[in-house]
Amino acid sequence: MVLLPAALPGGNPGGPSLLPPARAEQPRSQAKPVLRIGAIPDQKPEKLNRLYPLVAAELERQLGVPVTYVPVVDYTAAVTAFRTGDLDLVWFGGLTGVQARLQKPGAQVLAQRDIDVAFHSIFIANTGSGLKQIRDVKGLTALKGKRFTFGSESSTSGRLMPQYFLAKGGVKLADFAGGAPGFSGSHDTTIALVQSGAYDAGVVNEQVWSTNLRDGRANRAKVVAIWRTPGYPDYHWIGQPNLDQRFGKGFSRKLQGAILSWRTSNPLQKQILTLFGAQQFSKATAASYKQIEQVGRQIGKIR
C-alpha cells in the first residue's frame, strides 16, 4: 500500500529544506558510508521517532560509523526499501522479514528479542460489542458478522497469524460485517479504533497491547482482551548481505554483537530495551521463521 520513507515528522533541524531526509543522508559517492536503519511502522510514529534515533545513536557509539534512522510509511515500504538497498538494517516482523530475505538472497538474520521466540496476538473487543471471552480457536466464530480490523496487511501478529487462527476456527475474511476486514495500518490504531467503537473487534500484538494497558491509553471500560493466541516466532533484525564489503571485514558480526550486548544495566540501553518491551536480544536464525514462511504461503502473502 504505502511505499516510501516518510519525511521525518518534526525533524527538520537544518531550516526549511526541501530535502527528504532519506535522500539527504544517502551517500552516493565514496564518502564515509552511512548505516541506514529502518523499521516496520507497527506503532505510532511518535513512538518510532523516540525509539529508533536512540538505537541509531547507540549503534553509532558502539560501531564508530555514522548511523541514521530512515522512517518508512508502511510495511511493504520497509521490504521494498530493503530490496532496493535503501536500508541497511531493518527491524522486520516475521512475515516482512521472510519477504525481505526471499527478495534479497544472502540477507542475514541478526537478532530477535527474548519475547519473539514465542510471540502472541491478542484479540480485543469493544465492551459494547457484546463479545465475550473466547476459550479456544473454535470460539472465534463469535466474530462472524462483526466489524473487525487487522493491523497492517503484512503484519505477522496483526494479520498473518490471526488470519491463520481465524481460518482454523472456521472464520473466513468475507464473514466479517461489510464482507471484508479493515486494515488499520498499525497496532496502536487498531486499539484506538476498537476502543472508539468504529470496529467491534480487532487483533493486536501482545507487547503493544500491554504497553497501552500500562500507560492507560487503552481504557479497560471500553476495550478488553478476549483471546490470546498460541505462540509463534516474530520480529527480528535483518542486515544487508553486503555490509562487510561496505563497512569493512567482520562488520556484520560486530553489528550483531553490538545489538546482543544491550543490557538493562546501561541507562541508554535500558531505555531502548524498555521501548522494545524486551529484557535483551538474542541470536536468531533464518530457520526459526520456517513456520511463518509456511503460513505466509498458505495465506498467499508469500509466493
Partner: peptide, 19 residues
C-alpha cells in the same frame, strides 16, 4: 504522498492513522 511517495500527503496519512 498518501501512498508513501513523500511530501505532505505522507504526513496527512500518518496523522490520520495515528488519529
Amino acid at each position: 504522498g498518501v501512498f508513501g511517495l513523500g511530501g505532505l500527503g505522507t504526513e496527512l496519512k500518518l496523522c490520520l492513522q495515528s488519529l
